[in-house]
Amino acid sequence: MLRRLLPLFCASLLFMASTALAAGPKTHLPGDLTMQEALTVQNAALEKARAQGVPMNIAVVDAGGHLKTFVRQDGAFLGSIDVSIKKAVTARYFNMPTSALGAAAQPGKELFGIEATNGGLVIFGGGELLVRQGVVVGAIGVSGGSVAEDTNVARAGAAALK
């Protein structure tokens, strides 16, 4: 009985494999940020930055915390390039806005000193999570203005994904 089923089983495996290969390899994980989504987030953030009149550096990272898009507006601080990227990475690494992590990292608080970990984190406002259908798919980090201005721009970008 088993010998009769073996050829049928092998034929089924070959069919499934050929069907999968014909469809092409899956290069994008379903729980990750797409390029189009990253650009939508970036463009909404740029629009808010323009409205505020403050040149910004805007970084968008994917679900793994890797840079997906980045833009530096004319006149934005060079030193804020790294800050914007680290804000996005920090938000994604800890699944919370950088402002929330910063509140928990104040002297005497439970996470004091956390900014010295992971190659350096940024723990003040301007890093926000990107959430699609209840799943964290990335984060945005913004730097170039005051903390309030950075936060406004980052929140505008994050809201565009919803």
Results as ranks from 00 to 15, higher is better:
Met16Ser: 15
His28Lys: 05
Thr117Gly: 12
Arg155Asn: 06
Ile58Glu: 03
Pro25Gly: 14
Leu111Thr: 05
Met35Asn: 04
Val60Asn: 03
Glu115Asp: 14
Val122Phe: 08
Ala38Trp: 01
Val60Ser: 06
Lys87Val: 07
Leu161Met: 08
Gly144Gln: 05
Ala100Leu: 12
Ala91Trp: 05
Phe70Lys: 06
Val89Pro: 01
Gly138Ile: 03
Gln42Ile: 02
His66Met: 11
Gly113Tyr: 11
Arg72Ala: 11
Phe9Val: 15
Val153Trp: 07
Leu129Asn: 02
Ala22Cys: 09
Leu121Lys: 02
Ser80Lys: 07
Val71Lys: 01
Met16Asn: 12
Gln36Val: 07
Lys26Asn: 01
Leu67Arg: 03
Arg4Met: 05
Arg4Lys: 10
Met35Pro: 00
Leu21Gly: 09
Lys109Gly: 00
Cys10Glu: 07
Asn152Glu: 14
Thr40Cys: 01
Arg4Tyr: 05
Gly141Leu: 09
Gly53Ala: 04
Gly144Val: 07
Leu130Arg: 04
Ala104Ile: 02
Gly113Leu: 14
Leu111Pro: 05
Met96Tyr: 01
Glu110Tyr: 05
Ala20Cys: 10
Ile123Gly: 02
Leu13Ile: 15
Gly53Tyr: 02
Gly79Ser: 11
Ile114Thr: 10
Gly141Gln: 09
Ala76Met: 09
Leu39Thr: 07
Leu161Gly: 04
Phe94Glu: 00
Ala63Arg: 12
Leu67Lys: 03
Thr40Glu: 12
Val136Lys: 11
Ala49Asn: 08
Ile140Arg: 04
Ala105Gly: 08
Ala20Val: 14
Ala11Lys: 04
Thr98Lys: 05
Pro97Val: 03
Lys68Thr: 11
Leu39Pro: 00
Phe94Ala: 00
Ile85Glu: 12
Ser143Leu: 09
Ala17Cys: 14
Ser143Trp: 08
Met56Ile: 07
Ser18Val: 14
Phe124Cys: 04
Lys68Arg: 15
Leu6Lys: 02
Leu14Tyr: 11
Leu129Lys: 02
Ile123Trp: 03
Ala156Cys: 10
Gly75His: 14
Gln36Asn: 11
Asn95Glu: 10
Phe15Arg: 10
Val137Pro: 01
Cys10Arg: 12
Gly126Leu: 05
Cys10Ile: 15
Val153Thr: 13
Ala116Lys: 15
Thr98Ala: 06
Val142Lys: 04
Gly102His: 05
Ile81His: 01
Leu13Gly: 12
Leu14Ala: 15
Leu2Ser: 13
Leu129Asp: 01
Gln73Cys: 06
Leu78Ile: 14
Tyr93Asn: 10
Ile81Trp: 00
Leu39Asp: 03
Ala156Gln: 10
Asn152Leu: 13
Ser18Ala: 15
Gly119Trp: 12
Leu111Tyr: 13
Gly113Thr: 14
Val136Trp: 04
Phe9Ala: 15
Leu2Trp: 11
Phe15Lys: 07
Asp32His: 08
Pro55Val: 09
Arg132Thr: 03
Thr90Asp: 05
Phe77Ala: 13
Met1Thr: 09
Arg4Asn: 08
Val60His: 02
Ala38Lys: 01
Glu47Arg: 10
Ala148Lys: 14
